[in-house]
Amino acid sequence: MKTGHILRTTLPQPQETISVKGSPCSGYRSYLGYDPLEGKHKVLFMSRNEYTDQPRVLTLGAQESWRIITKGRCPMHFSSIGGYGRCFNGILYYEAFDTDGHRIIMSFDVKYENFNLIKILEGSYKMPCHMILYEGRLALVHKRTYDPNLDLYILNDSTGDEWLHEECCLHILAGLCLNGVTAAGELVFTSTENESLYILYLNPRRNMMREALFEGIVGGDFRSRYGLCSNFGIYNISVFPNHTETLVSF
């Protein structure tokens, strides 16, 4: 059996960190991006409580300090408190708000360190919502737990002014929760109704599905073996679609 290894990198403390209500760290978010052309990882760091047009960036492995993005190259915004980021083909996308308080998506070109503000179609961004790469374009996926309908909003142009809406109705999805997306673009759904863990992988591009069933995963033997309390339920299990045994060195 192969043993996985996790490589941990300690980042330097950003200089001139602004304290937010007495806590220097709680009001900030960071995002990891990757440039496949030069093989570089970069970390984007900014406040999540204040508007900014000068986020900091750090290139991993370059033995350099945090740099402030040149003023004027980034629209004024602040990152979403509960939002997350995803990187596709060298472009990092993350949830944010513009100066009017509207929910937006910011894109960050990891190689050239340029930003672009992407407007979200009003009413299209519902929670929970996942970012995926769909036919080479950014897409937002929304799925209610007990609803067979799947809403797919596809960015039609690079400026972020036009979105296409596709709706998929599969009765097999009713009762399943959307818990992420794989690197191959498959949507990952899990069951929350019984003691067995049921996982469904849906590829919306090819309209193909595959499934996996783990029986008794939250039964008495499972709880006893791992020291879990008796009220442990399937909803307590996290799903990591893109887990790998070994991470490349930064």
Rank of each mutant, 00 (worst) to 15 (best):
S19Y: 11
V20Y: 06
K21I: 01
G22Y: 05
P24S: 10
C25M: 07
G27T: 05
G27I: 05
Y28H: 08
R29Y: 06
R29T: 08
S30H: 11
S30F: 11
L32A: 10
G33N: 07
Y34I: 06
D35F: 00
D35Y: 01
P36M: 05
L37Y: 04
K42I: 14
L44T: 06
S47H: 12
N49R: 15
Y51M: 11
Y51V: 12
Y51W: 08
T52D: 10
T52R: 00
P55K: 11
V57M: 09
L60T: 07
G61V: 11
G61F: 09
A62H: 05
Q63M: 12
Q63Y: 10
E64S: 04
S65G: 09
S65H: 08
R67F: 13
R67A: 14
T70C: 12
G72C: 10
G72V: 11
M76Y: 09
H77F: 12
S80G: 11
S80P: 04
I81W: 14
Y84W: 10
G85Y: 01
G85C: 02
C87Q: 02
F88I: 07
N89F: 08
N89Q: 14
L92Q: 00
Y94C: 10
A96D: 03
D98S: 11
T99M: 14
D100H: 12
G101L: 07
R103P: 08
I104N: 03
I104R: 07
I105H: 05
M106T: 10
S107K: 03
V110A: 02
Y112I: 15
Y112N: 15
Y112F: 15
F115G: 03
N116M: 14
L117V: 07
L117G: 03
